[in-house]
Amino acid sequence: MTNNYQNIIDQFRADMAKAGMVVKEPLFGDSLLHRVYVEGDRPGKKNGAYILHADNHPAGYFEHFPQDLKVIWRQGDACGKPLSLAMRRQIEAERKRRQRERWQRQQETAEKARWIWQNAKPVFETKQHPYLRRKRVKPYGIRTGRGSLIVPFYDDTRVLVNLQFIDAEGNKRFLAGGRKKGCFSPIGQPMDGERLLICEGWATGASLHEALGVAVMVAADAGNLEQVALVARRLYPAAEIVIAGDNDESGVGQTAAKKAALAIGGKYLIPAQTGADWNDVISAGGAV
């Protein structure tokens, strides 16, 4: 019995690792929900969870929240056996608990973001920060604090929910625990029925706004382009929306821009030069 039990534990751990979730602490086949630390996460964080039934029909599930990884696991001849009602209830309860925790963290981060924004100093000229000078863009309403530029990000109700910080070298970070998916930073005032651009980086958005005189919604990265595009279409259903993507060597920017445009029936623009974004093009004297 002991050997069989240990075999189940070892196989479960091995399959977790194969899926990209390496857990070194002891695992238990006691049919209870366990939160665990996953190798590579920040120390002290338990972003993994699992349930393991180590009975005559070994089965369970494991998930790693940052990866959005969720795997239903069965061993041997139990492959066709459905999950028990108790296990399904545990999984659902855990999902709802995580949602509550995430919502609470987002609310706390939004409050922190609003406090920081209210106490940050306005930036009036390009010469006030090295990043603005290097990118050759005007500040367009952003602020500064502790040597970094501060870019506000809003949700679809136009409420400030997060901040992006950009230091002198161009390193960027958001407030931990805050919302980003579907959130955007506007440059100019979007109007329904008019042309509206969506891009990745803030400096790219500033360059496009200055060059074309149209409103821009900054998505922060390629992975958020489609979500911001969907928000833009809901807020401005009659607008001509254009996704101004990056020409990444990896192809990620181009693919994301095309996908976002397709999702809303819009258009997309990609710089001709590989490795360039629209800030690079405009700063070099090129046209959009």
Rank of each mutant, 00 (worst) to 15 (best):
R98Q: 15
K135W: 06
A206T: 07
R95E: 13
V252R: 10
K258S: 02
Q67W: 10
W202N: 06
R98T: 03
K135G: 00
T255I: 08
Q75T: 02
G266W: 08
A215Q: 07
Q273M: 10
D277V: 12
T144D: 05
G20W: 12
I198S: 03
A284G: 03
L132S: 01
Q75C: 05
D277S: 03
A59R: 13
M191H: 09
D280S: 02
E210V: 08
I166S: 01
I91D: 04
I166C: 04
V218Y: 08
M87P: 02
M16V: 11
V151Y: 05
L69H: 07
Q128W: 10
N119E: 15
E101A: 06
E226Y: 03
P66I: 10
A229R: 04
R143F: 11
I9A: 02
N171R: 13
R100H: 04
Q106D: 05
W202R: 06
V137E: 10
Q6C: 03
A206K: 03
I282V: 11
A203F: 07
L208W: 10
Y140V: 08
G285M: 12
L269A: 05
D167I: 04
Y5C: 01
V281G: 02
E92S: 02
I187G: 01
N4L: 14
A238W: 06
P130N: 06
I166K: 10
M217V: 00
P66W: 07
V159S: 05
K181M: 13
Q67N: 12
P122W: 15
G223E: 12
D167N: 15
K181G: 01
G265M: 11
I270A: 01
W202H: 06
M191A: 07
